[in-house]
Design a protein around this nucleic acid. Structure first.
Length: 203
DNA sequence: GTTAAGATCCACT
DNA sequence: GTGGATCTTAACC
């Protein structure tokens, strides 16, 4: 993966990450997924972004240079992974919402549970983290160096298959057209709006 | 120091 | 379709 490709605002990078491969190496083994769904969180102007209220200890990674991994804990249970994009000093990141396991499926299924269907192994942000084995240890990891977590280019995705839609699961600005996914892909989550989501103008 | 809310997922009805 | 689990962060007193 070229760092130049990531040095742009999240909403520009997010659709380009579709089809790219995210690989995580652990002592247990290696798991790779082809990204099928992303969501952009750009800058301190985005009310749904962790960076909205400025830089804090948690989101410091998002303010750093592009090409790193920002990992956070959601609802005290799940690990979610973001690719940091944009310029050093500007908070910008792309949440990996879903992917298709292309390497290490056995290990991914072992982590997720034996009864999980293949398309479900990495469907949903929390499940992506679990399938890949991502934890807080990977926060700030260099995706380009590829020591533990690596982002690489996958097979090109036909532009016609890329869809844009409202964001899911956030209680603010959920109708921003910042969610990108592959049309018809079974691994794409079809989640409901956040229970706290309030209707906003134009939604 | 205390409290409220959160970029979610699973089991149960 | 609905509700609960579970804990960290950040805002407020």
């Amino acid at each position: 993966m070229n760092v130049d490709l990531l040095s742009h605002p999240a909403e520009e990078v997010a659709p380009k990450l579709l089809g790219c491969v995210l690989t995580c190496k652990t002592p247990e083994g290696t798991v790779s997924i082809a990204i099928t769904e992303t969501e952009a969180y750009s800058g301190t102007a985005d009310p749904a972004s962790h960076a909205y209220r400025g830089r804090t200890a948690r989101n410091a990674t998002m303010f750093g240079p592009a090409g790193h991994l920002y990992v956070y804990r959601s609802h005290g249970l799940h690990w979610c992974a973001n690719v940091v994009t944009g310029t050093d000093g500007i908070a910008s990141g792309v949440l990996i919402r879903a992917g298709r396991v292309i390497e290490g499926e056995d290990l991914a299924r072992k982590r997720r549970g034996a009864k999980v269907d293949s398309p479900r192994l990495a469907r949903g942000p929390g499940n992506v983290g679990q399938a890949l084995g991502i934890t807080a240890e990977h926060n700030g990891a260099d995706l380009l160096a590829g020591t533990s977590v690596m982002l690489s280019e996958g097979e090109p995705v036909p532009a016609a298959l890329i869809r844009v839609g409202p964001r899911v699961g956030v209680s603010k600005a959920h109708d921003w057209q910042h969610r990108f996914y592959l049309a018809g892909d079974p691994t794409v989550s079809a989640y409901r709006l956040s229970p706290r989501a309030k209707p906003s103008a134009g939604a």
